[in-house]
Nucleic acid binder design. Structure first.
Lengths: 203, 203
DNA sequence: CAATAATGACACTAACAAGTATCATTGTAT
DNA sequence: ATACAATGATACTTGTTAGTGTCATTATTG
């Protein structure tokens, strides 16, 4: 019923260029996330996916085999995007802050909700998401800890990650709190670092 | 296709006693969890719920308004069960161990998966689950910390809870690891307590 | 013992959704 | 230029599912 769903195809007809084809594929996947989030994988319809992408159902099926194909492609694309767009942070603090901020974003929370909810039926997506998300984050934290705080502190990377998520993230997953602001993320990260004795002794 | 789904009603006909009616309601809800877990809320059918409970669809609708009614009743029942069956633990260590063990059980993991996945469409269930789960756990941890480790340590209850969940719990939600054994739960709890300086100085 | 609540069995309806088919149309590729 | 790939528009097929209706049956309740 939303404006998104009411939209009608807007592209012209005719054979698209190779570039346009890539763009359109991305456009379909991008539009798919909100639809799956609003209705859940099981209840989302292909017609809704088509309308949201401003494309006809016919076109969806020219890019993907079926509904599951759209879903898996969407998750994979987002997962790899997330893991590749990680800009190198200068300090442990800034890295921790970035992680907190990103992980509480509406986009990533939604993605996690979907994958967790469907993990029984799409186990490979759960694996993909974890490998390109948590694992990578923990490794990056370990690298920074090692170089900035010494070898001994490296085993604290995983607990640190758990604290960076914290109760806040659980509430986010359940839809009980809004995304963290940049300031909140920084404060949260500092608290977690302090608890583990990983905060730089400044001033 | 599973044996569960193939089962047929087994009860006799006729008017049940008041007690039987209560039992049957519980029986329906109990059978509903595996069905919702296997198929997801959206894809689970009322026929599957009926067959799993060894009851006819007609009977389901005599206890609940609709599919959503079965779902919400099931979650509420499980949530209150969980929060009430909490046996008082003697020490902080044993409480922490219990929490780790329970939270990684197949039952609670499944419940969380469902509620997280459907949190957009059933926000009140998310609230219920959090209130009767996390909130209560953190409060109990805080009580024990206060009485066993002193007032100052109480603020560490929430971080402690986050560490008790830890990366392990995230993997569990994604279906990437099996339930923790009792021994694993104890070891994990001790590690978390040690990290926050909350482990009793024994020996 | 009579009235009636609850059930199983089973058919049925109405809605909805996945995926396909057709066809005219447009613009790319060659 | 000409073939043809991809699309929008639209209708259609086929299967599924939520929820209801009916009726005989059983046993509780009063």
């Amino acid at each position: 019923m939303s404006a998104r769903e009411a939209a009608r195809p807007v592209r012209k007809r005719g054979r698209p260029t190779a570039i346009e084809r890539v763009e359109r594929r991305a456009q379909i996947l991008e539009a798919a996330l909100p639809v799956f989030l609003d209705h859940g994988y099981g209840n989302a319809t292909v017609d809704q996916l088509a309308t949201a992408a401003r494309v006809t159902k016919r076109t969806i099926y020219s890019y993907f085999d079926d509904k599951a194909g759209v879903f898996t492609a969407m998750v994979r694309t987002l997962a790899t995007t997330v893991s590749s767009d990680a800009p190198d942070a200068d300090t442990l603090e800034s890295l921790a802050t970035r992680i907190v901020y990103r992980l509480n974003s509406a986009e990533l929370i939604g993605l996690h909700r979907l994958v967790i909810g469907e993990s029984t039926r799409f186990p490979e997506l759960a694996r993909t998401l974890h490998d390109s998300g948590d694992s990578r984050h923990i490794a990056r934290l370990a690298d920074h800890i090692r170089s900035e705080r010494g070898q001994d502190a490296a085993p604290r990377a995983q607990p640190l990650f758990s604290l960076l998520l914290g109760e806040e993230h659980r509430k986010r997953l359940l839809g009980l709190s809004p995304p963290a602001t940049a300031a909140e993320a920084a404060a949260h990260a500092d608290r977690a670092l302090a608890l583990l004795g990983l905060l730089a002794e400044s001033e």
